[in-house]
Write a protein that binds this DNA or RNA. Structure first.
Lengths: 223, 223
DNA sequence: ATATCTTATATTGGATACAATGTCCAAGAT
DNA sequence: ATCTTGGACATTGTATCCAATATAAGATAT
């Protein structure tokens, strides 16, 4: 195992801590698809009992991040390129709506912050940070929106495909393209042009989907 | 408490059973908003320990059906009319896409089944069944779709607003209108007209949203 | 030698026991 | 009269123990 586990022996909210750490490790790809999650092992890493671990795992399963089989244990849920593509399709429906709503009530310092994060993203020399910076930018754009449920669903969708996003940013022109598209979206926001911004955002997401399908071709259907 | 709890003492999948029963009781409105869920009490009703109950509750929280506070316990999550309206908006985005996809691969007996369910819905004399029958009809229409993630998200959305749907069906012309609209959607499906079907479905959902906002007006904003 | 049955081990699921924290009420001080 | 404080009680959170089941290795029969 290669994630950071602190000692939370006899801590009150152990299950939430375990949940957070495991979730982060999974969406960032540190725990790769199919990796088994042994309750005992994880409990030892946190110096806690298996009870909070079990609770964390059951919550992760509800989010679709792990799969469990009775008496066989939990493994990190895999996501085929086709399944990921579907998640991108959903994002492409939701996030433009969120952005459009956010733009109607966006305070000035929000755009300011978005611009800074956009620059931080394009200037960051550490590929390890790109995933987080990308997500920060999107999150800031949506922050002013009141569509809480939309945002909740979108967050879960992003969680599920975060691994693919990170992989894409590392590919050939992945980073350059993301940067370019972020800037275009940001400018549309600064112009107050909701139609353009949401359309560009949609293209940004759909583009990522096609790039994904191209670079992770689905295996030939076998009899 | 007014839901059916069977004796599952020492049963292997106790937590899943508790989860299912609680979920059903919540979405059907038998456990009303704000009702406290005491671990002890529920465990006794099922003749199990609190462990499976805790797991069930934590999963329900992940679904947004209950809210918990440390050491204070869980209560059935409330949903204001405004929040419910947002959920309907999301359904209006997703479900037409699901239906359109389902129609491209719908086997013949599926439409047959939908028609039967549609009639069963309009003929049912028991208001208690209307909610289930309504949902069955929608589910059948979507069943052929391959958009698993879309369907998963839509299911959760329906869960959250099921209480409002049931209330609407009981109101004045609620049942009549739903019946009328279901028939129109079904006919568009039978004609193989995906555009018309998805549009009618969208209207069906958006209509329910406005009816909801009309009948459950949000309280005046108070200082 | 191979296939099938048996048994040992690993691992999960649940029950019971214990620890920690919030709530509520009463008694006393100001 | 009102506010604080302390302690009993209720309830949740975690640890430990036991039961049930799957996997894999070894024994046995053909």
């Amino acid at each position: 195992m290669n994630f950071k586990a602190v000692d939370i022996s006899r801590t009150a909210s152990a299950s939430s801590i375990v949940f957070d750490v495991l979730r982060k490790a999974i969406i960032e790809g540190e725990l790769v698809e199919g990796a088994p999650l042994r309750q005992d092992e994880i409990a030892n890493m946190f110096s806690t009992s298996r009870i909070p671990v079990r609770e964390a795992i059951s919550r992760l399963e509800e989010l679709g991040l792990v799969k469990t089989q009775r008496y066989k244990g939990a493994v990190v849920a895999g996501l085929s390129a086709d399944e990921a593509a579907e998640v991108f399709d959903l994002r492409a429906l939701l996030e433009p709506e969120i952005l459009r709503d956010a733009m109607t009530r966006m305070p000035k310092d929000c755009l300011q912050k978005a611009r800074e994060q956009c620059q931080a993203f394009s200037n960051s020399p550490k590929p390890m940070e790109w995933g987080d910076l990308n997500r920060d930018f999107h999150k800031t754009l949506y922050s002013a929106s009141n569509l809480k449920y939309f945002k909740e669903v979108a967050e879960n969708a992003m969680d599920r495909v975060e691994r693919y996003i990170r992989a894409q940013l590392l590919m050939s022109d992945g980073m350059a393209r993301a940067d370019r598209e972020h800037l275009a979206i940001l400018e549309a926001c600064e112009d107050g042009d909701g139609d353009r911004a949401s359309l560009l955002l949609r293209d940004h997401i759909i583009g990522a989907k096609f790039s994904l399908l191209e670079h992770f071709p689905s295996p030939a259907v076998r009899k």
